[in-house]
Design a protein around this nucleic acid. Structure first.
Lengths: 358, 358
DNA sequence: CTGAAAGCGCTTACAG
DNA sequence: CTGAAAGCGCTTACAG
């Protein structure tokens, strides 16, 4: 199945000295400037000489000007860094984060730049950060000193949170949650409840009793809660009587045990409406509820947040709020590349009514 | 909802000249070597002097040695590039690719390196490629000249295809498909069919009649087909009589119309077994079949490939082959970082029997 | 414990 | 149309 091979001939880290513009210049008896021009400014030398240089380059295996030297000289690397508050693994596997990154990638790539992924975990020293020409910080970075590592002369902007003095992209979290809760509360649920995402100041994966919560300025999920509370109050429900749970990480594995605990409550305690702060949470509710034979929406109404594909290409479809993460990524990239002015932006969301709460 | 702000004070691209080790040396009347040592080799200077340097650095906003200068001097950037055959958008949104990238990221990050994402689209000039210390090429790169852009002295390895003279990581595609087809053919389907992924030499999103296919050396999906054919022959079915379709991109949007066409065939022509080359395809079959009221597995058996979470956290669960993409990524990264020897690897897969073909 | 000097590979303004 | 020279910011072997 695999090609026959001779392990001796497999390329490891080869030891040849790298070929440079200087070697090439020496071999051809021209100046390094001319070799450089052959690659970067065809109009600066005769076609004949250029051909001679390029073919000699090919012959000796010179693959073009080295990016290290070039970027030191020009001051630009054509690299844009995305600084990620959560782990790389989380960001790559989560649908919302992936779409955001895809939006960033599209614009960055379209402008001849590439993407460097920098996880901003606690205490990380990001040696290669200063390589980048600009920074997009995605999500609340736990350690603010992290941000001081980035060269202050380069463009930097924040997504889904704020960094003093810098541009940002947000969505209308509170308004969106007010709307979806308003919609579903019209059905007069008897036991509404809320499943929050990363809302407690200290880690907590389970029921929230008196744990302190993050402030509005710290996390967007607090704004989502405000929206839910506003709608509850409108419906004459005292929000403080509504049970709440907290989820620490937006993955099936982390959600599932908490949700199982909720669904396994006695019939007269089990919520008949779960307002969830993400589609991942809502879909996990749906899966576990179906396994338990609960009827959706008769026994249990479910709402999500995000509008990811997985919640829409299934039956029943999730009632949720769609946010356009791709657009968010595109806008962030456009700002950091200087294609649009640095500003504070707030993107609109859209209520999507599926069968989990018609 | 957004903080009040004064648009005049928002950081755009600031104009200050960047501060260097030289500025710092001048201010403190020490050599640049000493400033460098303060950041990189604490043992090379007295603690008192080091403190003086670091606090002056903080005071003037110097964020540490610039990666461009450093990497030019040391020859290393601590950046590993992943060269992606498909678009960045595809790679970020596809579950298998995301897991692969997460595996790479885990090891790369664990060794103090960061990840540069390089889309290898046709004709791309990857200016920043030579920045990286090593290259992982993921998937068959359409244009082989692409690979010549990478500095030949640096470690490079291929995943899911082969590059002459370089190490690789594969899975046992043919064997895995032989096994899953053997399993499902025991039920003696009357009208088995195959849905391929990117198997025709020329783009084709639909039925395959006589279109030429890629060779084994070009794509892993040809190996998957070989496995299916082997099992069909074992069951005395002439593989050439089995209808085949081709899917050009492993996304719901691209699959759906082709699959709808298959499912909407008259009852006596509609396949009662669909061997799919990915879970994404199989899940799309499942969604569209459920919408049409087909009973699974009575009216239609479905098998997938990959073992992604979405196919397992649902009812009915997909019968599929699980490949450990995270392990693939970890191994690729370990090789390119020099943590394990450069070799050809073939990782085992696992047959997973769900309810779509018990 | 500290510093003077060389040089990593490149591009650019300038002179010819 | 081509070349000599400076310098981007840094680290390192070496001398003191």
């Amino acid at each position: 199945m695999l090609p026959a091979f001779d392990s001796e001939r497999l390329a490891v880290t080869p030891s040849h000295r790298r070929i440079t513009i200087k070697d090439l210049a020496a071999r051809l008896d021209v100046s390094t400037a001319t070799v450089s021009n052959a690659f970067n400014r065809p109009d600066q030398l005769s076609p004949a000489l250029r051909d001679r240089i390029l073919s000699e380059a090919r012959a000796v295996g010179y693959t073009g000007p080295d990016a290290r030297g070039r970027s030191l000289r020009t001051g630009r690397s054509r690299i844009i860094a995305v600084v990620l508050a959560e782990s790389l693994t989380y960001n790559l596997n989560d649908a919302v984060a992936s779409e955001f990154l895809a939006g960033v990638a599209e614009v960055v790539d379209g402008h001849g730049h590439t993407l460097l992924l920098l996880p901003a975990r606690q205490g990380a020293r990001l040696e290669s950060a200063s390589m980048a020409d600009g920074f997009i910080v995605y999500g609340l970075v736990a350690d603010p000193r992290m941000l001081e590592q980035f060269p202050s002369q380069k463009p930097l902007m924040a997504v889904d949170f704020d960094i003093a003095g810098h541009a940002s992209v947000h969505i209308d979290n509170q308004f969106a949650c007010l709307n979806i809760a308003r919609h579903t509360l019209r059905q007069r649920p008897r036991r509404p409840a809320i499943i929050n995402l990363r809302l407690t100041a200290e880690p907590c994966n389970g029921r929230i009793i008196d744990q302190p919560l993050y402030e509005e300025s710290q996390t967007i999920t607090r704004l989502r809660l405000n929206g839910f509370y506003e709608a509850l109050a409108e419906h004459d429900i005292d929000p403080t009587t509504v049970p709440m749970w907290n989820i620490e990480e937006n993955t099936y594995e982390v959600c599932a045990p908490v949700i199982a605990g909720i669904l396994d409550l006695p019939d007269d305690e089990r919520p008949d409406l779960l307002l969830c702060m993400s589609d991942r949470i809502a879909l996990t509710v749906l899966t576990l509820a179906e396994q338990r034979g609960l009827r959706i929406p008769e026994d249990l109404r479910i709402t999500g947040f995000d509008g990811i594909a997985e919640g829409q290409y299934r039956a029943p479809r999730l009632t949720t709020v769609r946010q356009d993460s791709v657009a968010k990524g595109r806008l962030a990239a456009s700002m950091v590349l200087g294609l649009v002015p640095m500003k504070h932006h707030c993107l609109a969301t859209q209520l999507m009514i599926g069968e989990t709460s018609p």
